[in-house]
Every structure is written in C-alpha cells, then in structure tokens.
C-alpha cells in the first residue's frame, strides 16, 4: 500500500482526466471536419488512454500482492475483448448479406 493522504489526489486526477478524454472524443466527432477514419483513429487512441487511466488510477493494477490472479484476469479480459469484438466483426462482415 502507498501511504494514505487525506485528499484522494489520484482519484480526482483520474476522474478529471477521464472526463476530459470523453469530452474530447465527443468534441472531435461533432465539432471537427476530419474524415471518418481519422476521427476513428483519434477516438480509438483516446479510448486506450482512458482504459489505462482506469486501470492505474482506479483499479490499482500496479499495487497489491495477488499479482498472479491479476495477470490471469487481464489476460482473460483481453482474450474476451478480442473474441467479442474481432469475432463479431468476422461473423457479421463475411456473410452472404454483406457480400
């Protein structure tokens, strides 16, 4: 455990950052004239930062001693994300209706 201070600086910082990233994404989609694919790339990048902030500032992956379980947990989560996202895209874009 890190030392506990009264003011939850990390949490507030994380909170502000995640709101900023979300608002940023909305702004880029609605208020800019980038092409669709550029927009996608930008908000995709923002999403990755968002995930990192959540993991480090709120879910404390860098702390704690149950490292083994955390690793399995993250590996499984990544596996699931790939199955759900890549699997869905594969299934839905290769069918007869899409060709």
């Amino acid at each position: 455990m890190k030392k506990q201070s009264m003011f939850p600086l990390n949490h507030v910082l994380g909170f502000v950052l995640s709101i900023a990233l979300t608002v940023g994404a909305v702004f880029i989609v609605y208020q800019t004239d980038f092409s669709a694919s550029v927009k996608m790339n930008i908000i995709g990048t923002l999403a990755i930062f968002q995930a990192l902030i959540q993991l480090i500032m709120f879910m404390h992956i860098t702390e704690g001693k149950s490292g083994g379980i955390n690793i399995i947990n993250i590996a499984y989560a990544i596996f699931l994300a790939i199955v759900v996202v890549a699997g869905s895209i594969w299934v839905l874009t290769t069918g007869h209706a899409a060709m």
């Binding site: 199955v83 594969w90 299934v91 290769t94 069918g95 007869h96 209706a97």
Partner: peptide
C-alpha cells in the same frame, strides 16, 4: 463456451469458414 455462439444462427447466411 465463449467460442461457440454462432451455432445458434448457422442459417443466418454466414460464410462457410465461419
């Protein structure tokens, strides 16, 4: 069990590979 869901809609018109 996370890898089999398409068996509920084989007839949806998926590709042969799927």
């Amino acid at each position: 069990s996370m890898l089999v869901w398409v068996h509920h809609f084989y007839t949806m018109g998926n590709s042969a590979a799927v």
